[in-house]
Design a protein around this nucleic acid. Structure first.
Length: 639
RNA sequence: GCCGGGGUAGCCCAGCUGGUCAGAGCGAACGGCUCAUACCCGUUAGGUCGAGGGUUCGAGUCCCUCCCCCGGCACCA
């Protein structure tokens, strides 16, 4: 199955994105990363396969379609284009784009379910919970707000529902062992502890069905026509349905043996626990690698104030080009860690790395040679020691890039290429071919050749990052991207062939203008929105009174709860538990007159009943209790 | 509160298993060059390597305590 001469399979996947989502920088980053990783491995001689796609089942899709008055399928057919059409514009080239509504996928989901059912890993059981008919969802006791539906505030009903469950608990130990024995299973490695911690709490069996009376948009269970498969169980199987599980065993085994799942850190548990136990249950090998990426933070306040990141990063591809966006995303983020996105930082890298160094090397060399010798790649003469120093660096470069990529350090790989480019610029500078040419044409030709050859090598190694721009560069040198890294050799650039002098590949951005623009944007802060309007009658429902704190003590086991006895005068004494511990010392609260929402339904916190709520201003770190500005008796009403 | 990651030059970050580890890039200043996209090249940063202890002949690099940021869990809304 492997193509002759290839090193073996590297099968890369992105998550399948929820079809209702609007594509954002997170989707783009993960997909570009996967594409880049794949392109590098193809260059390194691996047989590669790249899958992405969309997740199309579930409640939200059904709801959205209903709202629009069209079938869920029609809705999906339309929405999936948002993702499918985005990828080419980012120079992402997947081999396959899977949709979970495709028959090839639904067939696999059903077969897998049947297999697990036959094996006894799926069983039926009754589930009891609070059901909200308004949103057609179940909630646990904890999720209820004042005993009402947390989304609508309306009544909920205790309801029993029969459902099917996956015996995940059975595979807990096997999974733990696999994680311990395969240190490179989770990337970065420190994620391992997170997953082991999750396992430590013990795995519970998972509900994997929904009755069609509630949700009909899904894959019907093969052993019970009245139910559909719950979305996550359905969706995860895309990784195996796309490569021929149950239909083409040879193909499936081949690609599956080299699978790399690229995911965001938010779905690490889904992949490292749910998905892996599913695979264990199905008797399939676990993925070779699960790579959890970090987030691009775009609303970090410090960042937005000083550096400006008001723009949608995806829009920047119009301004800077898709390749430049790819470059920045790959260069600026260390896989697994969060990074801040700002246009200014991107522009600085763009100018510094791409325009001034990478693009300029080719530009200065071609223009000089063209002027002196015409648009023909010159023939080098004897190499000097200076030449050889650069040549040695060029020879070492492919190995450095390969090592960096192998350890998921694409940022480092890029930096290695750039270091080389900088040294080539320095070489050109030091050799002064524009002066040498006046006395020694042959020497000038050699310098020109060395510079061009360096540019060609850099372009080839940068091709996985910037496919289009590097192709343009290489084609201008009568060349093309290398098929394998072994082909990237000093001397491959053919003297005598024509070259073309390109215009600026990466036109510089005017940073002064950009900074001014950002400053302007930051000047006009958007007014905050208040909550939806209410009537006086709504307000009248609240019984708010003053109260005096009689006693206060921290709640054991909690880091911020404080238990207080509060005197409400004619309304008696109350116990109220509040989350003030990070702002107030318990003893400082005693004696304070506070404002209490007195008719709030009691609620249990840490096993203690809280009969009301203290009103406080602020949120998060700054919380200030409200106090009347002159003494009033406990129990006074507030209006 | 528990677990993990991080706190290194104005900015972004390298520094693995202790001894050229006190660094690169950007920005800034000065100088050089003019082939090139006001570009490139050179010199210049004296930074208590978050704080305080400790181990050691010697510690960003190991140990302890503490502070701050991020993430996971718990919890809160």
């Amino acid at each position: 199955m492997a193509e002759p001469g290839k090193k073996g399979p590297v099968y890369v996947t992105t998550p399948i994105y929820y079809v209702n989502d609007k594509p954002h920088i997170g989707h783009a980053y993960c997909t570009i990363l996967t594409d880049t990783y794949r392109r590098f491995h193809r260059l390194f001689g691996y047989d590669t396969y790249f899958l992405t796609g969309v997740d199309e089942h579930g409640q939200k899709v059904q709801d959205a379609a209903k709202k629009r008055g069209i079938t869920p399928q029609a809705h999906c057919d339309e929405m999936q284009a948002h993702f499918r059409n985005l990828w080419p514009t980012l120079h992402v080239e997947p081999d396959d784009f899977i949709r979970t509504t495709q028959p090839r996928h639904e067939m696999v989901v059903q077969k897998a379910l049947q297999q697990l059912y036959d094996k006894g890993d799926i069983y039926s059981d009754e589930y009891e919970g609070w059901y909200s008919p308004w949103v057609e969802k179940f909630f646990t006791e904890d999720e209820l707000v004042d005993g009402k539906c947390p989304e609508t505030g309306k009544e909920v009903y205790k309801l029993k529902e029969r459902n099917y469950f996956f015996r995940m608990s059975r595979y807990e130990e096997a999974l733990r062992q696999h994680i311990m024995e395969h240190p490179d299973f989770l990337v970065p490695e420190y994620r391992k502890n997170e997953v082991l911690g999750f396992l430590k709490k013990g795995l519970r069996d998972l509900c994997i069905s929904r009755p069609k009376s509630r949700l009909s948009w899904g894959v019907t269970l093969p052993f019970d026509q009245d139910y559909v498969t719950y979305v996550w169980f359905d969706a995860l199987l895309n990784y195996v349905s796309a490569i021929g599980l149950y239909t083409d065993d040879e193909r499936f085994r081949y690609w599956w043996s080299g699978v790399h799942h690229f995911i965001g850190k938010d779905i690490l548990t889904t992949h490292s626990v749910y998905w892996t136990t599913m695979l264990l249950a199905l008797g399939l090998p676990l993925p070779r690698h699960i790579i959890a990426t970090g987030w691009w933070l775009t609303d970090d306040t410090k960042m937005s104030k000083s550096l400006g990141n008001v723009v949608n990063p995806l829009d920047l591809k119009e301004k800077y080009g898709a390749d430049a966006l790819r470059y920045f995303l790959m260069r600026a983020m260390v896989i697994g860690q969060d990074a801040n996105f700002s246009e200014l930082q991107m522009a600085e890298r763009y100018n510094g790395d791409l325009a001034n160094d990478f693009g300029n090397l080719l530009s200065r060399a071609t223009k000089l040679i063209n002027k002196q010798f015409g648009p023909v790649i010159p023939t080098p003469g004897e190499y000097t020691d200076d030449d050889r120093a650069l040549i040695d660096a060029a020879k070492a470069l492919p190995g450095l890039v390969q090592d960096a990529v192998a350890s998921y350090r694409i940022d480092v790989a890029i930096e290695e290429v750039l270091k080389f480019v900088r040294s080539a610029n320095k070489y050109f500078n030091d050799q002064e071919p524009w002066a040498v040419v006046k006395t020694d044409k042959q020497r000038a030709a050699t310098i020109g050749y060395v510079a061009l050859q360096a540019a060609q090598i850099a372009a080839m190694l940068m091709h996985p990052i910037m496919p289009q721009k590097t192709r343009d560069m290489l084609e201008s040198l009568s060349s093309k991207p290398a098929d394998t890294i072994d082909a990237i050799k000093w001397g491959m650039l053919e003297p005598g062939k024509p070259f073309e002098v390109l215009g600026s590949l990466f036109p510089r951005i005017d940073l002064k203008k950009l900074k001014a623009q950002i400053e302007k944007q930051n000047e006009k802060p958007k007014p905050a929105q208040t909550r939806p309007e209410i009537t006086i009658d709504d307000f009248a429902k609240l019984d708010i009174r003053t109260g005096k704190v009689l006693s206060a003590e921290p709640v054991k086991g909690s880091n911020k709860l404080i238990r207080m006895q509060i005197d409400l005068g004619p309304f008696g004494k109350r116990q109220i538990v509040g989350g003030l511990g990070l702002q107030y010392e318990a003893q400082d609260l005693v004696g304070k007159t506070v404002i209490v929402l007195a008719n709030l339904k009691p609620r249990k916190l840490f096993g203690l009943e809280s009969q009301g709520m203290l009103l406080a201003a602020g949120e998060g770190k700054v919380i200030a209790l409200l106090e009347p500005d002159k003494p009033v008796s406990p129990g006074s009403g507030i209006s």
